[in-house]
Each structure stands twice: as structure tokens, then as C-alpha cells.
Write a protein that binds this DNA or RNA. Structure first.
Lengths: 241, 241
DNA sequence: CGAGCCAGTCAACGCGGTGTTGAGTGAAGG
DNA sequence: CCTTCACTCAACACCGCGTTGACTGGCTCG
């Protein structure tokens, strides 16, 4: 009964070490122990962080399903029941990890992409590059999260949120380009934005995991950028014969 | 010890009911009982089929992880140990299901797409439509298989095979179009093929599951076709300002 | 300063799912 | 008839999960 109540973020603890960087992100586990912990007793945060880094390390070698909670606990130097004091489940750990990645990609994107773009080509290209770099840097987490998405509703929701944000921005940018007469109509801007962002997600995933046919790392960004430009600015094709 | 030896396909049984339609597809489970069964004692095949249909039925309501082997066995009117006589694991069942879908999409595609195309636009469009129809018809299996792909190496391999086949065809068709001067260069044909097929996979998945931002069912095929045409035939963009 | 609270910890338990063993049964078939 | 072989299942061993309940040691407040 000493479990922390469903209070997500009580106040700024002394140490600035809080791992879950941004986004509200509800807890994962069914019932009992939601994510956060109340006070800032130092050892506590260290443990939480130890769990996260252990998870990231193990994920580099094996899929989430092959990692037991006991592995995570041992890796962090605690017992299995103690693990549950910090996280409600394995999934919750991965979700916390994913939170950090999402926060980073969003933050980076904001600093670079706020201007609509004097030169559209480089504008779109740099947006793609940011996605690529962040995915690449945290590939283990991203790959594991993609797997989670298939079976875990909370994971799906989280990912859907990210995609919504990005397709929203993309759609707005496309509409702006259309408004100034630079891009043709033909597909609703929102749908086109969904398609292009889906493309990035799937292609980058394939390139970074390397299963199935994939685009080589050295040229993914350029190839994707070319497809984006053609899809956004290209006319509906003469398709001659 | 009466378990069937690792013989995948011994000879054509009397009944033409063999469920695993095409592709060699090694067994899934770690060690003991690989997929097939030897002779054609009728009750045997019926059982195997009963398991498959039960799986497909249950998948319509719940994810694979929520389905226990006992559910499958009971649904087919057998006990749990007996289940293992037919399949090595839950995953093997899904893989068998997926085999059928793959065989169907490949077969359908072959009948429709063999000619290079008098009218490119409709050619590409009908290729996309076939994918869409088949995905749609077996959406539960496809969705479950996509989830499996994240954690199961055999599932990954199977899916990679399909994608290889399709990107190969697409790349060949693109190169043919380039050869006759109808399409420009700019991206290696193979890479473009990978990108476009990845796009289809991800977008159709999103549309059929409905999580995250998605393209409406009524227009997916058209929108995708437009993107394909622009990506294949569009020039590298004037991108003016 | 002593009482009490509270973050933090873990041995031990119960549960549900998995895969295996070993003993059967009944129909073909020599 | 007696063997063989496809097929079946009760019972078992095992593992990972999530929970309980008891314990500890530092902090705070009367």
C-alpha cells in the first residue's frame, strides 16, 4: 500500500535527472503501480535510470520478448519485486524509453523546421534527415517500439500521437505550397502527408533493421527526399505511350 | 516418438486439402514437431484445417498474444497436447495462415500483371488494387502477421520474401519504362521500388487497422496510385520560388 | 529524542501458459 | 491375429508474471 498514487508529476525534484522528458504519456500497466515515484531520494532516481539503461543495453542484443523482468531487475541491481516499484511492466519501460526519443525528435524538429522554407527542396530534405538521424541514434528503441505497436494498445496510441503531429505539420506545409501556386492539387493534402510520413517510417525502419529489401543507408535520405518532391510538386503525370 | 520427421512435403496426398499452399516455409518452433503430417487419414487434415479456421476466427476478436494454445485446441475440438501434433507453436499456425494469403496475392498478381502495360497508369493502379483487395480480405491475418514480424525471425523471413518478389517486379517494370524513355532517372530503380512497395505496405496497414492518421478506404488506392505515378514518371521537380 | 511515517526492498507465493512424456486406442494390412 | 502407425490426451515439469506482507533505515514533527 505504499505504492505511489496516480500522481504523474508532483513537483520538480532537487535532482534534474527525471528521465521521462516530455509528453504526458499515461502509465502502461493494467492496474497497480503507475510510472512515477514521489520524492527525490537520490538512490531512487538512480535505480530508475539504471533500469532504463539496462533495458537499452539488452535491447541491442535481443528483442523485448526475450528479455525478462528479472533480467532488467538484475541488470539494475535490484530484485524482481522491486522492479515493480518503478515500472508497471516491461512495456512501461520501453514506453519511457520511447518518450525520450519522441521528445528529442520533436524538439530537434522544432528548432529546424519552423520557417516555411525559402528553398523547398532543402526544407523537406532536412525534415527527413532529422527523422533519420534520430531513428538511427536510437535504433534499438525505435525497433522495439515498432514491434510493441503491433500488440500493445498504449504503444499504438503513443506512436499515433507522433505521427499525427508530423502529418499535421506536413499537411500544413503542403497546403501552403499549394496556396502559393508551387504545388498542384490531386490528392487531399492530409492524405498525401499521411502517405509520405508512412513511407519514411517504413523505409527507415527497413533500412535500419536490414531485413527484407532495403535502401542503403548512404542514400536513403536523398532517395526519400526525391520521392517527396516528386509526390508534392509533380503534376499528375503525362504517362505517355 | 511417432512425431513426423522434418519432411516438409513428402508427396501429394490423396486429398487436395493441403492447407500450406506454396512457399517452402520452414517450421517455426524451436525443436520438435515441424509443420506437416504424413498420410492423408481424413480426420487428420480436418483437424489441421479446424485449427487454422479457429485461429482465423479468434484473430478477428483478439490479438495473437491474447490467444492461448488451449483456445486454439478447444476450438478445433482437441486437447492441447494434440495441438502440438499438428503445429509446433502458435506462431506456426499464423505462419501457415500467412502462407495461404501470400500464395493468393502472388497468384492473383500473376494473372493480371504479366503484360508490361499499354497504359502505364492503369497498370500500376491495378497492381496496387490487388494488394489492397487481398490485404483487405484477410486483414486479420495480415495484421497479426505484421505484429509477429517484429518479434519472430521466421515471420520476418517470410515477409521479406514476399517483399523481395514484389520489389523485384516493380524494379524491372520501372527499368523497362526508363528504357523506352517514358520515365526519368534520379533514383536507382531498385531503391525506388523498395520505397514504393514499403509505402503501400505501411499505408494499407494503417488504413485497414485505423490507428493513427490514415487514408480513407475509399480513396487509398487512387491516392497511392497517384504517388506512384508521380514518383516514377515525375521529373526531379522545378521547386520554384 | 522518540514515534511515526514513508520511500524503498525482497522472500515467498499463486497463477496461467508452455512444451514434453508416456501410456494409450483403433483402424489398416500383412 | 498381431503389428504398425496415425493420432489422442492426462499428467507433469517449468517458467515468467504480478502480488502479498513483512522488514529497514532515514526524515520529520511533536
Amino acid at each position: 500500500m505504499s505504492r505511489p498514487a496516480p500522481t504523474p508529476a508532483p513537483g520538480p525534484g532537487p535532482a534534474a535527472r527525471t528521465p521521462t522528458a516530455a509528453t504526458p504519456t499515461a502509465a502502461t500497466g493494467r492496474a497497480p503501480s503507475p510510472r512515477g515515484r514521489r520524492t527525490a531520494r537520490p538512490s531512487g532516481d538512480e535505480r530508475e535510470l539504471a533500469i532504463l539503461t539496462t533495458a537499452e543495453r539488452l535491447l541491442a542484443e535481443q528483442p523485448l520478448t526475450a528479455i525478462s523482468i528479472d533480467d532488467l531487475a538484475r541488470g539494475a541491481g535490484i530484485s524482481r519485486p522491486t522492479f515493480y516499484f518503478y515500472f508497471a511492466s516491461k512495456d512501461a519501460v520501453l514506453l519511457a524509453l520511447l518518450d525520450r526519443v519522441i521528445a528529442q525528435v520533436n524538439a530537434t524538429a522544432r528548432t529546424v523546421l519552423d520557417d516555411v522554407g525559402s528553398d523547398p527542396a532543402t526544407h523537406w530534405r532536412s525534415a527527413i534527415r532529422i527523422f533519420y538521424e534520430t531513428f538511427r541514434e536510437h535504433r534499438t528503441v525505435v525497433v522495439a517500439a515498432a514491434a510493441l505497436r503491433g500488440s500493445h494498445s498504449e504503444g499504438r496510441r503513443l506512436w499515433a500521437g507522433v505521427m499525427n503531429l508530423w502529418t499535421g505539420r506536413t499537411a500544413a506545409a503542403i497546403e501552403a505550397e499549394r496556396a502559393r501556386g508551387a504545388a498542384p492539387d490531386g490528392i487531399p493534402a492530409h492524405d498525401l502527408a499521411v502517405i509520405l510520413n508512412s513511407t519514411n517510417e517504413r523505409v527507415l525502419y527497413g533500412t535500419l533493421t536490414g531485413d527484407g529489401p532495403a535502401v542503403p543507408e548512404s542514400t536513403v535520405v536523398d532517395s526519400l527526399a526525391t520521392v517527396w518532391l516528386r509526390a508534392i510538386y509533380g503534376t499528375t503525370t503525362p504517362a505517355g505511350r
